[in-house]
Design a protein around this nucleic acid. Sequence first.
DNA 1: TTGAAAGCGCTACCAA
DNA 2: TTGGTAGCGCTTTCAA
Lengths: 355, 355
Amino acid sequence: MTRLSTRRTATRPTMADVALEANVSVKTVSRVVNHEPGVRPDTAARVIAVVERLGFRRADSARPLRLGRTRTIGLVVEDLANPFYSQIGAAVEREARIRQHQLITASAEGSPTRERAVLAELVGRRVDGLVVVPAGTTPGVDPEVVASGTPIVYLDRPVRGPADMILSDNPGGIRSAMEHLVAHGHRRVGFLGDDAQFWTARQRREAFAAVHQDLHLPGAPRICMGPHTPATVGAALESWSRDKDPVTAVITGNNRVTVHTLRAMRRLDLPLGLVGYDDFELADLIDPPITVVHQDPAALGQKAAQQLFVRLLGDGSAPTTVVMPTRLIVRGSGGPHGRRATVSPIRTGPAGQQV
Amino acid sequence: MTRLSTRRTATRPTMADVALEANVSVKTVSRVVNHEPGVRPDTAARVIAVVERLGFRRADSARPLRLGRTRTIGLVVEDLANPFYSQIGAAVEREARIRQHQLITASAEGSPTRERAVLAELVGRRVDGLVVVPAGTTPGVDPEVVASGTPIVYLDRPVRGPADMILSDNPGGIRSAMEHLVAHGHRRVGFLGDDAQFWTARQRREAFAAVHQDLHLPGAPRICMGPHTPATVGAALESWSRDKDPVTAVITGNNRVTVHTLRAMRRLDLPLGLVGYDDFELADLIDPPITVVHQDPAALGQKAAQQLFVRLLGDGSAPTTVVMPTRLIVRGSGGPHGRRATVSPIRTGPAGQQV
DNA sequence: TTGAAAGCGCTACCAA
DNA sequence: TTGGTAGCGCTTTCAA
């Protein structure tokens, strides 16, 4: 038997240290620690005893070197604080954890440049796979990633070139929103989209224009793209309301725009019909409750992670694109003319004191 | 010169491959790639050319082995999808990125057992440091983490034993909420706390009881702890409202409880005053707008990350505890008796059609 | 300015 | 059943 480790530093014990103490080889320690078969029970017991006495923990940071896999996946989104992305993140993390992988998250902040840098870092870390909500205007598959051979699943927005993608049915979502509004008497509907640099924003805009035509709505479609602030939204709403054919309802392009629109409508006291893209917490408690197109971010994230792990398991079949359905959640804000919420709002002041 | 690498596989090129092509040693490649001084410009240029031609990227996964640091930090929270934690996550990730570190996030799902497992994994990965929102009932500093010597900063909830902690001024927050309600005429106030397994929930509960006494409010403090559902909250509200001295206002213990309470109040048509703990998006658009105790999750996360990096830079001074202030955001729901929102709610239906 | 050799902690491979 | 050896891809140390 060869004893290698004589060093005694302040660092944590290594397999060599354990081997020395247990009077076995490093390889045997490795076998025991990794629950590999073929170790005599008493040998294993001796090793385990030393492992516990020394407080040994396998340094997982050294394994990938030989194993070739880091058991790590990377997630790149625009802004982790946005509920849409944080729900995606939570879902991806859960899928990763189930499969004993860890998740490294990074915000690209909507900048293609940052995204490339972040991807390069992740690839440099040798993550086993990537889930990416791509920034910018439909770039091609990142060349750095391709060169590394790292499996990647694109989420929410497509990229040029063959790749696994999990998308959301934006045309269907917009159509359901418009049909809902039209069914409730609206004919003059405006669209407030997010920044057209985002593919989803463009796709929803185009769907809006197409459905506008399909449904034979009057006039040219009124569209105002972002990036939006409450001010830009307010200006659009005021302008559309002053037209000789004023809009009676609007559709917002995502959760950010919905928030601005709600504030602007409130501030300007513009009682327009509204269907928001993306569900949000407490949408049912606003007066009137807000009707939304719901895409399930957790389902999107889960699906993307699952597809990624299929690839990590060695599935080399052709890239797939999955389009996830959306669901219209009707709450009232897009309802018939003059309809109000029927339940009372929460009131202020002591109980029983009517206002 | 010794040429080691003759292997030609499908994997990415290594420094040895570059060295071979550029007719230099591996060490020189390392120098160039890491921008170390002492390389003749023409040599460097030759290396760079090969690096680009081969598409070489340094494998960062191999560096920690020698360097001892992984340039990775771990974040453990309860639920990444909860906006409170996702804002913390975004802030920590940002601080990490600024310092060229990557962030591994993990959800402990409120389970101390899971938390220990997650911490063990993170320590096994040799993360350089940890930010942890500890689960469970104020456990001691995790022994695994201590053994590893990994710097750790606890966030939002304290642990036994000396450690860096970033906490929020819960007593101050509760006091500000109660003083606000009392100033607006409320005397009979209930407290709906989250699960008492959470330290923050208990601390807020105790602060509530203490302030209740300080302010000489009548009767015993009415307190109902979670875990809550809309049903449990509804039951508490109904019970408190049927008392001979019915409550006129409630304080909720965190954002989760606030949501349930809003729904319950709406459903039961119970017009009680309300101050919520934790701000939330669109709190201003609910009728009446919801007054909240705001703790800035981004600031908490940033502070924790900054403290961690101070430690990573070698600061070995005594552990510190920082208590971050809260801020009462007055919006109306805790206001004077009978006060209503003065702006109109958003209405349904076409513009101009008054309802 | 450049290079050879050793080794970080672990695992694969083959030998005993 | 167990052990030795040779790396994984990089950086450190020291020598040239």
